[in-house]
Simulated scan of single mutants.
Amino acid sequence: MGAHGPIAGAGTPVFEAVELTLDYDTDAGAVRAVENVSLSVREGERLVLLGPSGCGKSSILKAVAGFIRPTSGRIRVRGRDVAGPGPDRIVVFQEFDQLLPWKTVRQNVEFPLRVARKLPRAEIRGKAEAALRKVGLERVLDSYPHTLSGGMKQRAAIARALVTDADVLLMDEPFAALDALTRRQLQEDLLALAEDLRFTLLFVTHSIEEAILVGTKLHLLSAHPGRTIASFDTAAFGLSEVGGRRFEEVSREVHDLLFSRPKAKEPAHV
């Protein structure tokens, strides 16, 4: 199951990062966050980035979103170089306050479609309600975010992302702040939506189990600066495989690769 190195797949990549290096400017100089990482994700694939804190997982996601400009290398979506944020990439963050508090759940989901101004009002409303039904929020359409639980807020954020029909859904530890039961339920919901909608996903997590469960591909990163350790094909694992022999074998292999390596040096100043 552990295929160390790039995993081949059929079709043209929806997005790819080629020899990506990311630096941050600090008072002490530029600090390298990610070094020479290449990724490739095709239609309907779910790529998970996993590694220790500070390895550059979120930095890669932000670079794909267009919020960070690469120091070197390039990122392409549908063959076009990423030059900044765009409607072809939608982000769901960990924080629960990503919804607009003065708008209802329905209005929050409608918001990106209204900003785009490409659809009639009735069609926007219908798309928003359909997306909310898919995530199980049809009963709280007219509620405000402050009345929702953390899990419900994340469902609303996912519905808002799905309604745009973006090329890539980007999720930065979206379930990390939730209790264990709610987290598992949302993992199940995400997998059901992926089966139904076949969206393309880049997902960041600190959890080995979640990484293997959620993704069809798993990319391991070293401690800072983040470099590729290995890649795994995890498409065969679903909820029924959690705790099974092969699932546990891959979990141990991933654990050993992450924690049995030499201690990372301090970030390189470049």
Rank of each mutant, 00 (worst) to 15 (best):
residue 231 S to F: 02
residue 173 E to H: 08
residue 15 F to P: 04
residue 17 A to S: 10
residue 7 I to M: 09
residue 79 G to H: 13
residue 252 R to V: 10
residue 200 T to L: 04
residue 236 A to F: 01
residue 42 R to S: 05
residue 205 T to M: 07
residue 267 P to E: 06
residue 170 L to D: 03
residue 76 R to S: 06
residue 158 I to D: 00
residue 149 S to V: 00
residue 53 S to V: 05
residue 120 P to N: 06
residue 41 V to P: 00
residue 261 R to H: 06
residue 254 V to H: 01
residue 13 P to A: 12
residue 159 A to V: 02
residue 208 I to P: 02
residue 126 G to S: 15
residue 262 P to G: 10
residue 159 A to R: 11
residue 58 S to H: 06
residue 73 G to S: 12
residue 99 L to F: 09
residue 16 E to G: 08
residue 6 P to Q: 05
residue 12 T to R: 14
residue 207 S to A: 12
residue 162 L to C: 07
residue 87 P to D: 11
residue 132 L to N: 11
residue 142 D to S: 12
residue 163 V to P: 07
residue 100 L to V: 13
residue 178 L to N: 06
residue 26 T to S: 15
residue 72 S to D: 07
residue 222 S to Q: 09
residue 13 P to I: 10
residue 262 P to R: 10
residue 126 G to W: 06
residue 177 A to F: 05
residue 78 R to G: 10
residue 66 G to Y: 07
residue 135 V to A: 07
residue 169 L to G: 01
residue 222 S to L: 07
residue 268 A to I: 14
residue 220 L to F: 10
residue 36 N to C: 12
residue 136 G to K: 09
residue 210 E to N: 08
residue 50 L to F: 05
residue 33 A to C: 08
residue 253 E to T: 13
residue 158 I to A: 00
residue 85 P to E: 07
residue 45 E to F: 01
residue 211 A to P: 02
residue 29 G to W: 11
residue 165 D to P: 08
residue 184 R to F: 09
residue 74 R to H: 14
residue 222 S to K: 05
residue 135 V to Q: 09
residue 96 F to C: 03
residue 238 G to F: 05
residue 24 Y to L: 12
residue 116 A to L: 13
residue 9 G to I: 00
residue 115 V to K: 11
residue 13 P to F: 11
residue 225 P to Y: 08
residue 1 M to R: 12
residue 130 A to P: 03
residue 120 P to Y: 08
